[in-house]
Amino acid sequence: MNDMRIVKRDVDMNDTKISAKGVQVFYGDTHAIKDVDVEIKDKTVTAFIGPSGCGKSTFLRCLNRMNDTIDVCRVEGKILLDQEDIYDKRVDPVQLRAKVGMVFQKPNPFPKSIYDNVAYGPRIHGLAGSKADLDVIVEKSLRRAAIWDEVKDRLQAPGTGLSGGQQQRLCIARAVATEPEVLLMDEPCSALDPIATLQVEELIDELRENFSVVIVTHSMQQAARVSQKTAFFHLGNLVEYGDTQQIFTNPKDERTESYITGRIG
C-alpha cells in the first residue's frame, strides 16, 4: 500500500472539539472502557485503532450517545462537546446526534429512494424551509460525498440498489446532510472492496475541511493514510494518543509498538 496516496493539506488543527475525561463504560458487569481521556481536535481526522474487542467502537458510540439504545450499557465520566457535557441530563440525544453524525460499519441505506435517504435528516430536523431548499441540501450533500455524478440521474431509484461503495457514500451524504460538526465513522470501509475503500478514504480527507472526523478502523494502513491523530486502544484502555506520524514511526508505549509491528492484535 502506498501510504502517500492522499495529499496532505494544511488545516487548522488547534481547537479542541471533543474532550473526554475519565470515561468508563460498563456493559452489565463487563468493564468495557477504562478511564479514557482524549481530546479530539476540530477539522482533523482522528483514528481509533486497536485489536478487535478493545473498546474503540464502544468509545466511538459514546460520543453521540448511541450507547443509550443498549439497555445494559452505562457510561461514567465526562464527554464535552464544545465545553458542554453531552451526558448532562439537559441534553437531548436527538439534538446531540444532529451535531454528531455517524456512519456505520455496514452501509445501511433505508429502503427508500436515494433522494429520500439524504433528505431524511434535514426533514426530521426541519432544516429545509421548502422543497427547493431541500433539493439544494440533497445536492450539496451528495456532492460532498462525491457521489452526485453517479446518482444525479436516478435520485428516485432505491438506495438499496446501489453498489456497496456507493451505498456507503450515500450513507455519508445522508450523515452530512444534517450539517453535523463531528462525523463518527465506525469502520466505514470494512465491508467494501479496495476500490470503493479508496474512494471513501479520499472522501474522508476532503470532509475534514468542514468536520471533525473520528474514524474507527482495524486497518493500520488506513489509519496512517487518512488520519492526523491516532489513538491506540487495548483491552479497554487508551494506551497512546498522538500525531499519526509519531504513533506509527515512534510509538512510546511498547504495546503500541507490538500492535503496529503485528505482534498483538
Binding site: I86, D88, Q95, K99, E181
Partner: peptide, 17 residues
C-alpha cells in the same frame, strides 16, 4: 466543493443544553 462548505454559523453556537 469549496463553494458550499461554509458551516452554518448559528448552528455551531447553539448550546446543547
Amino acid at each position: 466543493m469549496t463553494a458550499n462548505t461554509q458551516p452554518t454559523p448559528q448552528k455551531s453556537t447553539s448550546s446543547l443544553y
